[in-house]
Design a protein around this nucleic acid. Structure first.
Lengths: 356, 356
DNA sequence: CTGAAAGCGCTTACAG
DNA sequence: CTGAAAGCGCTTACAG
């Protein structure tokens, strides 16, 4: 295969099939065939009400016949806005990203929008200029911000300044209703607290996430509220600060299990850290749930694969992504706004039991 | 916020910031400022050799100063090819997708290309028309096909017909060198076989993947080859066909462990199924590795989180994605082709030991 | 080595 | 309700 002297995406890939490539129809072809102007075809494409029913049907028929589909590049250039939706994430847990992405794709299915993924480093000062150049250059139709990116107010301000539509996914409302998917993590954590209290636990430990994460704050707050409902108070001596990672969970639990008066139950604010608690329990010779009950948060795949299968708070990550997509997608933007709230649910498995 | 009567991505998002929005410079501005024609600016942008050094430097200086970046939509329209790279996947294991995606993004970083993700259903007859319309409409610069999509010859034929550049990621070479990233799964499986044989195992079971997956075939073949090197033969009575899922792994292992003369070791062709073997071992009251050694494949995060930590064949998924991206990215297309081979590596942990 | 013209396939004002 | 003109911001032939 030959390549030209210049760069850019010129020059085909396969080098094959250049034989029977019949050119695709353009808006001009459709206009000619329908005997109308291209502007009228454009109106039909864009569902403008300013077309007579008869004309509309005639044009639609031709579009059907020919299989015409407007060129997104050309449309984007004229609209000054691309048919792209961005997913801007910085999630320590890849599982969240996949699930959100799946949901978003569910929503975008057949909409003509493509999903562009943009990982960023929330700790990098360059993140703002990166996103600025992404938005200015690509002009995406909108972007979805899962947490913790959704909590980055500087970034959100930038999006507003750039006039870029967005939807934030977070544990609590941080913005106007039509820009939010809310997962109410606190309520999920409260369910975990009630579950442990109802089993009879009183010495309950908490392995917390990074204090900068809103989800961590909300989960902890909800957990304490749930305990309070049962007349229990979280003992500060049984709280360990960790970082949402497996390793930090191992360390935190190891520390807790070595206490002179160790807890009978531990709630880790995500499944990764809860898996770490499993490891520390094994190392300390503790049997789950006989010696120690463990509850996680997320209900990631690992929760049901550990032994014994782990009790965890399920977050409908895929639904959250789908909702975010529906809030952005144009069809759903006219008419009723979709529901933007989601409820966590405690999945009780075999890692929790009555304390000895 | 008001919205117009027509659809499409018109109408801004934030409604804010429309105040200080200074217009970005276009190629015309740069041309005027540099005192050259826009075509010359275009040549500089595209690294054409047909520009005098002096002129080039002058134009580059202006571009630097102004922070000019060419509009990808406009460029795409004129080039008849978008600045997008597609990732077309249908992976039963989301972990693969995330890792490949990360690697691809590593490679695309700063290239000006955006990554568009396109899940497909390999069993759906509509997959070909879906992809056709994606390619014809979006005109991506190229696409990456991880397995098992990479094994779909019909799809690959379609890409060739559409003149779409592609790179396939697979366990064995299926195409020309510059269209392939090869992971040599067979060699990894052979390492697993040698490891188990060297520990003294002779009754070794195999939990296989779906027969339609090339990776499954290659892993099995490599495993048998590795055993043969040590003078061992795979006993057909100890082979179970499963589906690369956790549940199928549970069922297959349960069956094996119930045998009158059960195996002392089991090799599962991926980590999901190996995790299933852990569960079945627990259910059967078998202790890993005392009663049964277990080896997985992939070295997914779960491998090191299970107890005991699992021996597994590591596939450098992220590197594979990065290599695929480098093979597509324009900078690397001129000059030396990047290496396109990758080697699996057995990570020995605590799930394998000498049989009793 | 450099440029003026035409065009990529759409949409936005502006008329009627 | 419909259309002719101009334009989105680039690149491709075609000249020189």
């Amino acid at each position: 295969m030959q390549r030209g002297g210049e760069g850019g995406p010129g020059g085909g890939g396969g080098g094959a099939g250049s034989g029977g490539a019949k050119k695709r129809p353009t808006i001009n072809d459709i206009a000619r065939m329908a005997g109308v102007s291209k502007k009228t075809v454009s109106r039909v494409i864009n569902d403008s009400p300013l077309v007579r029913g008869e004309t509309r049907e005639a044009v639609k028929a031709i579009i059907q016949e020919t299989g015409f589909a407007p060129d997104p590049q050309a449309r984007g250039l004229a609209f000054r806005r691309a048919f792209l939706v961005g997913l801007i994430y910085d999630n320590p847990n890849p599982q969240h990203t996949v699930s959100h992405q799946q949901g978003l794709l569910d929503a975008l299915q057949g909409s003509g929008f493509e999903l562009v993924v943009r990982p960023i480093d929330r700790t990098s000062p360059r993140r703002l200029s990166d996103i600025r150049s992404f938005i200015e250059r690509q002009k995406p139709f909108g972007v979805v911000l899962p947490s913790p990116v959704s909590e980055d107010e500087e970034l959100v301000e930038l999006l507003k300044e750039l006039d870029c539509r967005y939807v934030r996914i977070a544990s609590v409302p941080l913005d106007e209703d039509d820009r939010m998917v809310v997962s109410h993590d606190g309520e999920g954590a409260a369910q975990a607290a009630r579950h442990l209290a109802d089993l009879g636990h009183t010495r309950i430990a908490l392995v917390s996430g990074p204090p900068t994460f809103r989800s961590s704050k909300e989960r902890r707050k909800g957990f304490e509220a749930g305990l309070a409902e049962r007349g229990l108070l979280l003992d500060p001596a049984l709280v360990r600060q960790a970082g949402y990672t497996y390793e930090s969970g191992v360390a935190a639990a190891r520390d807790l299990f070595a206490l002179p008066n160790p807890p009978t139950a531990v709630f880790a604010l995500n499944d990764e850290m809860a898996a770490g608690a499993y490891t520390s329990a094994h190392e300390a010779g503790l049997t789950i749930p006989r010696d120690i009950s463990v509850v996680g948060f997320d209900d990631a795949p690992i929760a049901s694969r550990l032994w014994p299968p782990m009790t965890s708070v399920r977050l409908p990550l895929r639904d959250m992504g789908r909702l975010a997509g529906e809030m952005l997608a144009p069809d759903l933007m006219r008419g009723r706004p979709p529901s933007h709230d989601v409820q966590p649910e405690l999945i009780v498995r075999a890692s929790t039991a009555t304390p000895r």
